[in-house]
Nucleic acid binder design. Structure first.
Lengths: 181, 181
DNA sequence: CATTTTGTTCAAGTTTTTTTGAACAAAGTT
DNA sequence: AACTTTGTTCAAAAAAACTTGAACAAAATG
């Protein structure tokens, strides 16, 4: 082979395109490009990849990879894979759509939903304190609309998970739903 | 009342809080703050509001309101409301959760899903062109995973709409599903 | 048809988010 | 213990997204 060439460990055409799909998907759900790239490359690659391999093949900074993997771990979108003989952490992508979606919902969606409930209670208090006898009715009306939206969203989650393949899911009061589908 | 005071048409406490809920919701689905504010104020207010009233009460620029309303119209999240005697357009919020979600999916989600299909076909071609007999198998495997995710996402949509209240929804080949729930 | 009213457009300014890279910590080696 | 490897943190730089406001168009009015 020719002498010391710069040896950019370039990605093949299909890898680039497939990673692009994940970059778009990430952006769609509000995650930065670098996270799409990392998950995308792991998705393309047969073997587990180490931190360094991600940095080199994607040509992005260590900082981005470190933070990106942190988020992906939190979401349950990557798994640590032990490689004998190597001291480095190796990563593999989570391939179960159900688990990916579940992780995303639990991490990014549910918190907003829950904090939302408290916010609505606060708003109700504010409406009561407020004078304006006349407009109070409308305000409370809209508040109820909001509450009904919340409730429906919550009911939707377990159904989504079920359709995605047999889910156990958060729901304080409803009857058991270990394995619906 | 006191002489010409600056008269900031300030929002009441409960309005501010409720608008805040919409600002957060907007951000959650990747829409800018100003759009959350506009929809939020319309949601709080009993009467339809004009362009100018939105500018004044929210204290944001005409540009933001114009662009914000454009997006909200596109999403079907606001409706024009004719007010006799006034030449201005007046707006009211769409209050049906089903229609709101449907508008969002149709406008922001479906396009990505569809363009996605073509992208995957392109990737398949690239994988075939590519040499490397050995790795082709894995690549095609992952491509199939992606296709299955797509398919499941598409199946999910009508179900989501149905749960939200009896939907007619896009689906080329499946059997009739005018009113499921 | 000149003028006013109403709303849109878009380049420039501002703010927010993301990325970088150098300094740092933690743990393993020699 | 000194050194190396591996990965994290975080302030500063870069990029992206959002907002502003002045110039512009379109339509109604007088």
């Amino acid at each position: 082979m020719p002498a010391t060439q710069s040896d950019t460990p370039t990605l093949s055409a299909w890898e680039t395109s497939m990673i692009d799909v994940f970059v778009r998907a990430a952006s769609l759900i509000g995650l930065p490009r670098s996270i799409g790239e990392i998950y995308g490359l792991l998705f393309c690659t047969p073997q587990a990849l180490s931190f360094d391999e991600l940095v080199e093949r994607l040509q992005i900074s260590k900082g981005s990879v470190s933070q990106g993997l942190k988020v992906l771990r939190q979401l349950g979108a990557v798994k640590l894979h032990y490689v004998p003989g190597s001291r480095r952490d190796h990563y593999q992508p989570e391939l179960s759509m159900k688990r990916l979606v579940s992780g995303f919902i639990k991490d990014q969606f549910e918190p907003h939903l829950l904090s939302g409930s408290q916010r609505l209670d606060n708003i109700e208090a504010l409406i009561q304190e407020e004078g304006d006898e006349a407009s109070r009715g409308h305000a409370l009306d809209r508040l109820e609309t909001l509450r009904s939206w919340q409730k429906r969203t919550r009911k939707l989650m377990p159904i989504v998970m079920a359709v995605l393949g047999g889910a156990k899911f958060f729901d304080k009061e409803s009857t058991d739903q270990e394995t619906i589908i």
